[in-house]
């Protein structure tokens, strides 16, 4: 728990009541289970739909900040002159509830790219500013989760406005930011000192319960030319599942469509990822493309921002059509 944090304990009923009252002013987005499809972030109008249980959403929360396809501007003709027309930015306020700690860390990492000094992405920042993030700590990380190996934890509150942890039939709410305080302050009661202590030890225990741990080296400089990449990339089918479902992957492609400029997700696994207009492709084989993914996450980004561009959410392993495992690839990298 950070400085200035507030800890509250409340029941599901009271929490639900508050959320219902918030529906007047906010769009509430949260995980909803769709039979035979999985869990998805959906706009919630009936709080009964909110999935409080175990499991992880297929798509990360990223898509509410970095849209899979964003119209940036529109071109038009006016009195024989070309003109650019800005498209209005959405202004409605949102609360995204049930965000897993790893995904919130993912947003903190994206901030470093899209809110970097002079380089401000107004679309991303507008989405950040109009959204309150309420996390849900993980009671049962699954076999593909490895957040503790990359600086995260099932209880991390980094990047969140508030974090909810289910404890028995009740919820402990860690209120982190001022704007979350305005919403949750009146809820339930404060934790007494004994409870705070107990909760602290419970947190530690849960962090320790994550079995899947990998070693991540400082950099991968020595093995750029290694045969290792050929070997580990053999089964890659070059689809976009790992990159599109990744909470931190942010490569995009600019496309012109009907006089509009469109920004779409792009992914390093695709054959045409770095295809140039001349027909040259510096990453023509999947070995080079897969290596790019690993290096961007565990080398280049770290050199620029002192952190891995991976939060250990496990999505790329869980949803890979051929179960490629980036964690294992990094763990077993033959460093010399």
């Amino acid at each position: 728990m950070g400085k200035g944090c507030m800890l509250k304990i409340t029941t599901k009923e009271d929490l639900t009541k508050i959320l219902i009252s918030l529906l007047n002013d906010f769009e509430i987005i949260g995980p909803k289970e769709l039979s035979h499809k999985g869990i998805f972030y959906e706009s919630i109008t009936d709080l009964k739909d909110l999935h409080w249980g175990e499991g992880f959403t297929t798509e990360p929360v990223k898509k509410f900040f970095l849209s899979p396809s964003e119209y940036l501007f529109k071109g038009r003709y006016e009195n024989g002159q070309e003109a650019l027309e800005e498209l209005p930015l959405p202004g409605n306020k949102r609360i995204i509830i049930g965000v897993r700690p790893c995904e919130a860390i993912g947003l903190s990492l994206l901030d470093k790219v899209f809110n970097a000094g002079e380089d401000q992405d107004k679309f991303y920042l507008n989405n950040r500013a109009r959204t309150i993030l309420v996390g849900l700590s993980c009671l049962k990380p699954d076999k593909n989760c490895f957040c503790t190996s990359v600086g995260g934890s099932p209880e991390s509150s980094r990047g969140l406005d508030a974090l909810i942890s289910p404890v028995g039939n009740e919820f402990i709410i860690e209120i982190i930011t001022e704007r979350a305080k305005g919403i949750f302050e009146s809820l339930g009661r404060n934790l007494n000192q004994e409870e705070v202590k107990l909760w602290g030890s419970d947190k530690k225990r849960r962090e320790g319960s994550l079995n899947f741990r990998i070693k991540v080296s400082e950099n991968l400089d020595n093995i750029f030319e290694s045969e290792y990449w050929e070997k580990v990339s053999k089964s890659c089918i070059s689809c976009g599942v790992c990159t599109f479902l990744c909470p931190t992957c942010h490569c995009f492609d600019l496309v012109d469509e009907k006089r509009k400029k469109l920004r779409c997700y792009d992914g390093c696994a695709f054959c045409d990822f770095t295809l140039e207009a001349s027909g040259t492709n510096p990453r023509a084989a999947r070995k080079e493309r897969y290596r790019q993914r690993v290096f961007h996450k565990f080398d280049y980004f770290k050199k620029n921002f002192q952190e891995n561009l991976c939060v250990g959410c496990g999505r790329c392993i869980r949803f890979c059509p051929v179960k490629m495992n980036i964690a294992e690839v990094v763990d077993k990298a033959p460093l010399v």
């Binding site: 798509e59 089918i237 689809c239 599109f244 779409c264 992914g267 695709f270 059509p321």
Partner: peptide, 9 residues
């Protein structure tokens, strides 16, 4: 989400 996994697989 246009990941083209259907095509690639």
């Amino acid at each position: 989400i246009r990941c083209y996994a259907c095509r690639q697989v």
